[in-house]
């Protein structure tokens, strides 16, 4: 199937060579494990957003007749200590954590690559100013700042919280991107583009960022897990997601104590988190290989 598509592409190439985006897409689609990861991600979203519709319990409902009951037909994944339905709670938590994890990773990586690449590429005062900002944010105890600001942002809800996590999570990545940009800037292809009259932002977009993409993608996949966990830590201290609302993090935190005695209260939430991070990593690896033309050699071209 895929080989047929490739053969066709070669035939029509005479008129219109494929652009980078379509090449990356084609190679991503050829990577089985990446496709599996993407499928799992889609299924998790379906579960998170359609699950509540399938279950007649809401995450706030309390069933006084069933405290700490194991999974049954009435409560699919059992109930917790005060009789709340674990399935309803987990999918509700999953909604939050999926969005928080992915959005924080995307925002912080985007911010890091923008600031890092600009600092590295332009150098001089731009570099100094941006790096001063980075160092400033690094020395601020981010936990404290978030703790102070987040109550004031109650109105913004979890989106404001995503913003806060992203703003404090990009600095180290930016420093690495900056140093990678510094060495890329001296490479001849960047110099060639400059002499050809390609604008600086275009060079950053077309030459610098694709060449640091491997690092950015790996970093973003790690950031997804990290964001979910730091959201948990903040929620534990009473910031971020507040009861009665739940996230995977709060559920795991609550369930840890009863992991051995009432495993369903812990393992469903924990299992979904593991599955989520794993899927993101598979997709990340697939994207990295798709972006890196030399990686394909090793996995074998065209079957």
């Amino acid at each position: 199937m895929t080989t047929a598509v490739v053969a066709d592409a070669d035939a029509v190439v005479e008129n219109r060579p494929a652009g980078r985006a379509s090449v990356v897409l084609r190679h991503f689609l050829r990577n089985r494990s990446a496709l599996a990861g993407a499928a799992v991600l889609v299924l998790l979203f379906v579960l998170a957003f359609c699950g509540p519709l399938a279950c007649h319990w809401s995450y706030t409902d309390i069933d006084y007749t069933a405290l700490r009951r194991g999974p049954s037909a009435r409560h699919w994944w059992g109930t917790n200590g005060i009789g709340q339905d674990v399935f309803a709670q987990t999918v509700r938590g999953l909604q939050k954590s999926l969005l928080i994890g992915l959005l924080v990773a995307v925002f912080s990586t985007a911010l890091a690559s923008l600031v890092g690449a600009c600092a590295g590429y332009f150098g001089g005062w731009t570099d100094r100013a941006l790096m001063f900002l980075v160092d400033l944010l690094l020395v601020f105890p981010s936990f404290l700042v978030i703790a102070i600001i987040s109550p004031r942002l109650k109105a913004g809800g979890w989106i404001a919280f995503v913003g806060l996590l992203a703003v404090f999570g990009w600095m180290i990545t930016a420093r690495v991107v900056r140093s990678m940009t510094l060495s890329l800037k001296e490479r001849e292809f960047v110099r060639a583009a400059r002499f050809m009259g390609v604008g600086p932002f275009r060079i950053i977009w077309r030459h610098v960022l694709p060449n640091v993409a491997s690092f950015l993608i790996i970093d973003a996949t790690i950031a997804v897990g990290g964001a979910v966990m730091s959201e948990t830590a903040l929620s534990y201290f009473g910031f971020g997601v507040q009861p009665p609302d739940v996230s995977l993090g709060t559920l795991i935190a609550d369930g840890t104590g009863s992991a051995v005695t009432y495993p369903w209260m812990f393992f469903f939430a924990a299992g979904l988190l593991v599955l989520f991070v794993l899927a993101v990593n598979l997709v990340g690896d697939g994207l990295r290989d798709a972006f890196d033309p030399t990686a394909r050699r090793r996995t074998g071209r065209r079957g």
Partner: peptide, 9 residues
């Protein structure tokens, strides 16, 4: 070195 390794010809 003068051709961006991540771009098609």
């Amino acid at each position: 070195a003068s051709l961006d390794p991540r771009m098609t010809v």
